[in-house]
Design a protein around this nucleic acid. Structure first.
Lengths: 350, 350
DNA sequence: TTGAAAGCGTTACCAC
DNA sequence: GTGGTAACGCTTTCAA
């Protein structure tokens, strides 16, 4: 049987309380006693029972990270950083995936308390204000990515501005017919403000796709170019295979656009592949750009122009905000915006 | 305050035990009573406290997955599948990263009990027989990937055979000078049997790199081609940027080999990029192959020849083995080998 | 400074 | 079938 504080106390000839004091190192313990306890700890190879500790003081030292699709390289980067930075703060990380089952997001909100976690970082897909409200008493929560709400803390980048900047980058290079890959399945109004309720379930990045579409259209409008629905290529799941398929099909049915702006880098990889298969040369015949600046982007052929932001800063901010909420549940929600920038690479060189 | 079984019991006019019976749905409960309890459950929005449950019955319903480097696309695929398949079994998943800190592997072994988990799936890097032995009483444990040991359950592919098969594939296409990317930093004997102790710390994939190197050499030997140390390009961290750097440098210092066999697909991406930058055409001037068949491989330019294995089967086997160990700690360790195959794509087309 | 005892929320044992 | 009660391992009052 594994040893408990009682066993340690007995071996050291002290009470459980003293052992607890030594372990948590808060109260002053006579050095001699401390030494005796510590050697007993070592001898028995004592390891505290986290369930008992969690039950007693209401905290487990664990947080949950919920992402729509763990397969995306972007997800891997987020998971990597959250695990690394949370570990520095002494927190363990439990991972959840939400895209497969839309209602899982709500379950997590309403039942996070059950999931053995002290807090939750959620990249929402189907979430809006009313959903957040109706979930009842929330666990300490930070949203990463875009939702139109002010009820809970959030860290995000300005998706509209980023998409506008990247579109402008393409316009600056003389592109007029700019295709976008990854727009929502069902076209909506351009601004998207307030029309969140009823967003179709199961689409990863629905919120992001709306905002990036909006930014794209804004840039076109500013340049006096009308929106051409034929250039807005929708895609339900943001995976490279989908992008390859849809771009490949597009090429057979339409005239080659001046550029393809893909809403994620991994979709851009699919697009580049489809273009290569069709014998279209990038950047000579058409330009390609992505979004996220994943690790792989600089090794694509050609290297990919994309939107970059400091992912470490992004995740650190999320953990900071979560720490605030965990320390004080009544703290006012905060929103942190992380700056972005266009990374120019060969895929849009002119 | 959040409701407990007691509150539910009071509201339903029954005892806590009955509530527990209803929740766990095992014992026969009178339908009428059951209905009363269930409506009380719903009314109070009862959520069980996992810490208490864990304390009481010794299980938390959580497993841990420990991988060397979460940034690798391969890791993302494993995390994705483990989370998905574990969830089907009602288990939560806690994620750990080991490469940054070698001793973390041992910590996990010896302290997994503390980490609030019922079992552990570990992709080992610096682990050998003696380490496993000396860790003392182990938690239910399954190793994924290669270690020379028979003490704990393990699921793996035959790395030696896979590397041999892929090398043979290149030989079949007329290659004689085949470079490998990702060999261990310090060259070792070819078989690698038994020389695990003291494996240098901090190298992701040390075990895998030894075995893949062995398979490569076996194929060369069978073809009567002597090993050329200059063709064995070592790399400490299996990341694309390292591969791009090392291959780029290689091209300036050596004659172009007939082929590059990279020990992971993501390194192959880096290699393809370096070759493209140097103006070397693939497959016209040299062939490139990888290992793992990550999602991105088929969208590389050109699409990448690689080693594939059924990742879902691989992960399902790991969870099955873990389930066995969790159910019966005395169960004999088992080893599952998952078959592999060479996927031929354009990067090695002749 | 240290010891004794209570209690966190659950489930299992044993009566009824 | 269902209700009391004890116990899981820890920390935190309160006393000594």
């Amino acid at each position: 049987m594994r040893p408990t504080v009682k066993d340690v106390a007995k071996l050291a000839g002290v009470s459980p309380k003293t052992v607890s004091n030594v372990i948590n190192g808060i109260v002053f313990v006579r050095p001699e006693t401390r030494a005796r306890v510590e050697s007993a700890l070592a001898e028995l190879d004592y390891v505290p029972n986290m369930s008992a500790r969690g039950l007693r003081n209401g905290r487990t030292g664990m947080i949950a990270l919920a992402l729509p699709d763990l397969l995306r390289p972007y997800s891997a980067e987020i998971v990597h950083l959250v695990v690394e930075l949370a570990h520095e703060r002494g927190w363990g990380v439990q991972i959840e995936q939400t895209a497969a089952e839309p209602k899982r997001e709500f379950e997590l909100l309403s039942k996070a308390r059950a999931y053995l976690v002290d807090g939750l970082i959620l990249n929402p897909v189907n979430l809006d204000d009313s959903a957040v409200l109706s979930a009842g008493p929330l666990p300490p929560l930070v949203l990463i990515g875009d939702v139109d709400q002010d009820l809970v803390s959030q860290v995000a980048i300005d998706n509209v501005a980023a998409a506008r900047d990247l579109t402008q980058h393409l316009l600056d290079r003389g592109c007029r017919r700019i295709a976008v890959v990854g727009t929502p399945e069902v076209p909506r109004g351009s601004s998207g403000a307030g029309v969140l309720a009823g967003s179709s379930a199961g689409e990863p990045g629905t919120a992001a796709s709306r905002l990036r579409t909006a930014g794209y259209r804004e840039a076109l409008a500013a340049a006096g170019i009308p929106v051409d629905p034929a250039l807005e290529i929708s895609l339900d799941r943001w995976r490279p295979e989908g992008a390859a398929t849809v771009v490949g099909k597009y090429l057979t049915e339409h005239e080659l656009p001046d550029a393809f702006f893909c809403f994620t880098d991994s979709m851009a990889a699919g697009a580049l592949s489809a273009l290569w298969s069709a014998g279209v040369r990038v950047p000579e015949q058409t330009l390609v750009a992505g979004f996220d600046n994943i690790l792989e982007s600089q090794f694509m052929i050609p290297p990919l122009t994309t939107i970059d932001f400091d992912r470490r800063e992004f995740v650190a901010a999320a953990l900071d905000l979560l720490g605030e909420r965990m320390a004080d549940k009544a703290a006012p929600p905060r929103r942190v915006m992380v700056p972005h920038r266009v990374i120019e690479r060969a895929s849009t060189a002119r």
